[in-house]
């Protein structure tokens, strides 16, 4: 209670605040408001442009509807979607294979300090960069196409998968590991019999979850040239072919929702 006791004046009472005093509280509120005013000003948006934009928005929506495609575009759409799905699957598998040793490295109960910090920094780095940034770099490294997308998604999978799996490993029951050691098991047997059975359900659940996430991302990495339906979408926008854009977006939404549904059902059945 850094605030004044309040009981000094019988007829007044002030709500204790999370800040140090009422003045600090209002000061912080004022700063926040000021920041919003500045940020807003910083957008340099004139009302005229905003209203013009609203008009353009209505126009865009009307030129998007109904979604439509020519036979050639239909081919492109199907190819792009299949490529996205395929990329998601391959990236998930590669990502998980790399993630498992990283997860072990990032669990403080299994490995010595230095290795733990290496594991943790791999996790932190792979988590911090957005998949599209990784994708754009990969495109420069290995060229346009799905390979760049797969590498980018696999890279992102490591951060997610290794982090959550490491948390699971840190919670395991050590008794089971010790029991394997006690009967004379070597360290590989210790991992296979003492650790793996305990975290297996989590590995399966996380894999399905990550497949779902990778599917979402594989539909957009094409925007920077990393394969999948994204490039087709970007091209349709560049050609002002908004009906086709709408068709692609609709298909993406449907695919993503189906993926989410299947993933949710599968994860529930495992648990």
């Amino acid at each position: 209670m850094a605030a004044e006791p309040g009981s000094t004046a019988n007829g007044s009472w002030e709500r204790p605040t999370a800040f140090y005093s009422k003045n600090v509280k209002y000061g912080i509120y004022a700063l926040i408001l000021l920041f919003f005013a500045y940020s807003f000003w910083n957008l340099r948006m004139s009302p005229a442009r905003f209203i013009q934009g609203l008009g353009a928005g209505v126009e865009l929506i009307s030129s998007m509807l109904p979604p439509a495609y020519t036979p050639t575009q239909r081919e492109l759409l199907i190819q792009g979607i299949i490529e996205s799905i395929v990329m998601a699957i391959v990236a998930t598998v590669i990502g998980i294979i790399i993630s498992i040793p990283v997860a072990v490295m990032a669990s403080d109960n299994l490995v010595p300090g230095p290795i733990y910090y290496i594991g943790r920094s791999i996790v932190a780095t792979t988590r911090s960069l957005h998949e599209l940034i990784v994708a754009i770099v990969m495109v420069k490294a290995v060229g346009f196409g799905p390979l760049a997308g797969v590498l980018a998604l696999a890279f992102k999978t490591i951060g997610f998968f290794a982090k959550l799996l490491a948390e699971e490993i840190e919670d395991i029951d050590h008794g089971q590991m010790e029991a394997v050691t006690a009967v004379g098991g070597n360290s590989i047997q210790r991992y296979l019999y003492g650790v793996l059975p305990q975290v297996m359900p989590r590995i399966v659940g996380l894999s399905i979850y990550r497949l779902d996430i990778n599917l979402r991302h594989s539909t957009v990495v094409g925007i920077v040239g990393a394969g999948g339906i994204g490039i087709t979408l970007l091209n349709s926008f560049d050609k002002y072919d908004y009906q086709f854009s709408m068709a692609i977006i609709s298909v993406i939404v449907v695919i993503v929702m189906i993926g989410e549904g299947i993933s949710a059902v599968a994860r529930r059945r495992i648990q």
Partner: peptide, 24 residues
């Protein structure tokens, strides 16, 4: 923003129900 008489009455009632000092 409650009127002062409500607040002083709240304090009175608080001690009447034996809860002095827990208002915050």
């Amino acid at each position: 923003n409650f009127p002062p008489e409500d607040i002083s009455r709240a304090r009175e009632i608080l001690s009447r129900v034996n809860l002095d000092g827990v208002e915050n």
